[in-house]
Design a protein around this nucleic acid. Structure first.
Length: 483
RNA sequence: CGGGGAGUGGCGCAGUCUGGUAGCGCACACGGCUGGGGGCCGUGUGGUCGCAGGUUCAAAUCCUGUCUCCCCGACCA
């Protein structure tokens, strides 16, 4: 992994934040550009992070009864077009296959932008009776949306994600599942990625194409303090059940349509990790999903010292592996310790373990935290336990730092002028009282470029005057610009 | 699609205005000294300047055409 990063530390000031984001992705070895415009190469270090995220999230899905499956990449145009709102929403960004070998296809095939319209008709074949429900399916795959302005992780033309699809016998059960999954995502973000966010419901204009209701987590990025939709969970109502004829015989003997949900989280979550936890030295990996949780840097001068520190390093490696810590020993002889320190900090490894002749003599190692740069000497006995404790501490510290940042940059706004000012200044989240009128929502979007990110679900019962009409309404909505 | 910028060894750039046969840093190879925060010295390898055409004794440099990428905007879970 060669790096040309030797000039100056990456900058994370507001006005250079976008460039910092591009640089840190490249320099840390997470992702590269590719010969295909808008598509990226997901390199091993980034993919390793994704694998850990997948595992942790997949386990949570399975605990709720979901099974994994896989459905085709291609969707016949006639199927994609069956749910009117769905096709209308996706039409501008669908990539099409029109040739098969040398022959023109009879019907062109969409490369899935999302799989509702291929999975729902298959569900229809699986369901006869209410006893066949619910169906709880997830797939890990990539989808394609022909975005005009790609950004690594946040908006690429092909991206990795998971999409869950369920079918239920009742409307209530579907609503319950949609809410359950947004809770699962929230738990994943907090406890694995150390990322706080605001859980809420999308306004009608921001709702997923074809959905009855869309739930979301909106997290605040550093830099411009814009919002990032971090995942999504839709109650599709019976729109797809009816469009794709998912019918079943209810206990009553009546023929009824199924109720569906779908929910997804993409590698955009990695964009959130980068933009929330990163700093002037580079990435900061959340410890529980970090590809490398601890890196051992042996330090030596003489061959004799080298033998000793390598032996101690191997001992530490074995102890940490036995304790379930993902550890790497950087035995490279080409780079100096200082070079390695910077390189692993750029890559965001939470704990660094320095082992030099002085440490070997004292039967200890030096542990350095990525988040606050503190160092401590720890005896080799019990080192693994200390590392595990540090990883937990760092997780908590990262979460607190992100939560503080979100809180410090959130405010309730009571006049439209104040709102416009905050948005223009990239001041962060603004909460306004809003009566639900789509016209004022559109006005805000046109005049400020900010959108209603969500109508928060919890702790949002206060009453106040609508920003425009002054009529009393219950609950506030979250407004910000978004990536 | 509109506005701006850029294409020169693997990467990042200078050279273009004022034509004369390509240079710097990093990386890479070898040798040596070094090694607890991106260490140093020496010796080397590697490009014909996005592509096509034109002007000229001579083109990275001037002219015409063309392709690609990046940034801003529009658009967009």
């Amino acid at each position: 992994m060669a790096s040309n990063f030797i000039d100056e530390p990456v900058d994370v000031d507001d006005d250079q934040f976008d460039q910092w984001y591009v640089d840190v992705i490249k320099r840390s070895g997470m992702m590269d550009n590719s010969p295909v415009a808008g598509c990226r190469v997901f390199k091993p270090y980034g993919y390793g992070l994704w694998e850990n995220m997948q595992r942790r999230l997949d386990d949570r899905f399975k605990e709720t009864g979901v099974e994994n499956a896989y459905f085709p990449l291609f969707i016949p145009e006639s199927m994609l077009a069956k749910e009117a709102e769905h096709i209308e929403g996706f039409a501008p960004e669908v990539a099409w296959v029109t040739m098969g070998g040398n022959r023109q296809l009879e019907e062109r095939l969409a490369i899935r932008p999302s799989s509702e319209s291929i999975i729902c008709p298959i569900f229809a074949e699986w369901v006869q009776s209410y006893r066949d429900l619910p169906i709880l399916i997830n797939q890990w795959c990539s989808v394609v949306r022909w975005e005009e302005r790609p950004r690594s992780f946040l908006r690429t033309r092909e991206f990795l994600w998971q999409e869950g699809h369920t079918a239920h016998a009742t409307a209530d059960e579907a609503e319950e599942r949609a809410l359950q999954m947004i809770d699962v995502y929230n738990d994943f973000y907090i406890n694995e990625l150390a990322i706080p966010s605001v859980m809420g419901r999308k306004s009608d204009s921001e709702r997923f194409a074809g959905a009855l209701r869309t739930y979301t987590l909106e997290a605040m990025m550093r830099g411009k303090k814009w919002a990032l939709q971090s995942c999504t969970s839709h109650n599709l109502g019976d729109h797809f059940g009816k469009s794709f004829n998912i019918q079943f015989l209810a206990p009553s003997g009546e023929r009824e349509f199924a109720w569906n949900t779908s929910w997804g989280l993409s590698w955009r979550a990695i964009g959130a990790i980068i933009m929330i936890h990163g700093d002037q030295s580079g990435l900061q990996m959340p410890p529980r999903v970090a590809p490398v949780q601890a890196v051992v840097v042996p330090i030596w001068r003489t061959d004799e010292a080298k033998t000793q520190v390598f032996e101690a390093s191997g001992q530490i490696e074995r102890a940490l592996k036995a304790a379930g810590v993902r550890v790497k020993v950087d035995r490279d002889a080409e780079h100096t310790p200082g070079w390695k320190f910077n390189e692993w900090e750029l890559k965001g490894v939470p704990v660094r373990i320095e082992v030099g002749p002085r440490d070997v003599a004292a039967g200890q190692a030096v542990l350095a935290r990525r988040d606050n740069r503190t160092k401590e000497a720890v005896p080799l006995d019990g080192l693994a336990g200390r590392v595990q404790a540090l990883l937990d501490d760092i997780h908590t510290a990262l979460f607190e730092r992100a939560l503080d940042f979100q809180r410090e940059n959130s405010a309730i706004v009571r006049t439209y002028d104040a709102l416009k000012e905050r948005i223009a200044a990239n001041a962060g989240f603004s909460y306004i009282f809003w009566d639900g009128d789509p016209a004022t929502e559109e006005k805000i979007k046109q005049e400020t470029k900010a959108t209603i990110r969500c109508i928060p679900l919890h702790e949002n019962e206060e009453e106040g005057p609508d920003l425009f009409t002054g009529k009393p309404v219950r609950g506030r909505v979250l407004i910000d610009r978004a990536y």
